[in-house]
Write a protein that binds this DNA or RNA. Structure first.
Lengths: 212, 212
DNA sequence: AGAAGAATTGACCGATTGGTCAAACTTATC
DNA sequence: GATAAGTTTGACCAATCGGTCAATTCTTCT
């Protein structure tokens, strides 16, 4: 099959080098944004000559697109954790938990996203208007159903999702601020777990009807 | 007095030109961060030759510091709206409201802050570790007192403030995402007011004891 | 072993970067 | 209206930018 030929696995060495460039690019783009990043700096962190970088990724923009689209896929995976079939508490808790874990495990991805949005989302703009909007609409429907059946207080679902996105992403994007406020040390696993539990509890209390 | 001579008011024309450069710089730094911004682009937006920009602000870094410190002062003004003397609901509502209004009225300032933190806060790092930490500690004390007197549920105050900062700042930093999800149009005043009311209500419900 | 292709790299390119400078131009003061 | 000070600006600089290229080295296959 032709498609199988196209997917012929490259040598492991090649994949390794590509990944090294990719990871270096992620770190640099996350810190300096697209314009502020240089292929020279990325190559330096990947420990290869700049010319070699351009052999694997012809342009800075191609590399940026590859990095950005990868972040997008990670986002989509986490999105599925908001499950319609479970009850509101469980669905919301699972979703917030998944997004918190994402921020903890891949803060760089979150920062790449943040930089892209700050620029006006020139690359992922289409995705926002199509896939993300569709996702949001379908989840809004679910939330509205929960509200109608008295399982949630009357809220505008959209702004509730914004709160979740804002809070979870904050733990990745503003890590620098948190470190400064934590005596120069990153949040420990225990601290992060406390934060995660509290974020879930506070947001659930904020939208669940009083138990009267 | 010598200090008075130093503060000799410059001509109104000079102040106007300085302000034009300043505003152009704010917009550019907010969009591209420090490294991604160029003095040429700032000068272009201020509609002056680049050499003239360097007459008013000798270096790109000096201009950036001026812009950043201005953002900092705005933050400090809003911080005072968290008032110890009022009850928790009012203090928290007023503070969230003030930060939401800040995000609405000065999204650029918020984005400059975000870019600075994403870079690792090289300029405002000192401020974070001193003034901001002091502010946070004193407010944590107030919140803990409220918890002890049963006016708030048991929470770690710090992570509650992070939620507030995250959510309010999100309305400025991720405006591009919200616009994409709102049919390409910015949030109307009515939409923003709804969002603001809901954010306050949800967060208050999240930390106030049930009315049983 | 040797040919063919893939990968590596130093040298280099025109464009852009932050910043300088001297000459020209305005404005205030006497 | 002459002088001095403050302001504006095009031309220019070395350094860095994204990207190219030809020469070289390494792998793979027969």
């Amino acid at each position: 099959m032709a498609s199988e030929l196209a997917r012929t696995p490259r040598s492991a060495a090649r994949e390794g080098r590509e990944k090294a460039i990719f990871e270096a690019a992620r770190a640099v783009f996350a810190e300096f944004g697209f314009k502020g990043s240089t292929t020279a700096e990325i190559a330096r962190r990947a420990d290869i000559p700049k010319a070699n970088l351009h052999y694997y990724f012809p342009t800075k923009e191609a590399l940026y697109r590859a990095v950005t689209e990868d972040v997008l896929n990670t986002w989509l995976e986490a999105a599925s954790s908001f499950d319609e079939s479970t009850n509101p508490s469980e669905a919301i808790a699972a979703y917030i938990g998944a997004k918190m874990d994402m921020a903890r495990l891949d803060p760089i991805g979150s920062r790449i996203w943040a930089n892209e949005i700050l620029r006006g989302a020139p690359v992922i703009g289409d995705f926002l208007e199509t896939t993300l909007l569709d996702w949001l609409k379908s989840r809004e429907t679910i939330v509205r159903r929960w509200i109608k059946t008295g399982k949630l207080v009357a809220i505008e679902p959209r702004y509730f999702f914004y709160m979740i996105w804002a809070t979870t992403q904050h733990y990745a994007d503003f890590e620098g601020q948190m470190v400064a406020l934590n005596g120069g040390k990153p949040l420990s696993d225990a601290q992060f777990e406390t934060a995660k539990v509290q974020v879930i509890a506070t947001l659930l209390r904020g939208v669940l009807p009083s138990e009267t």
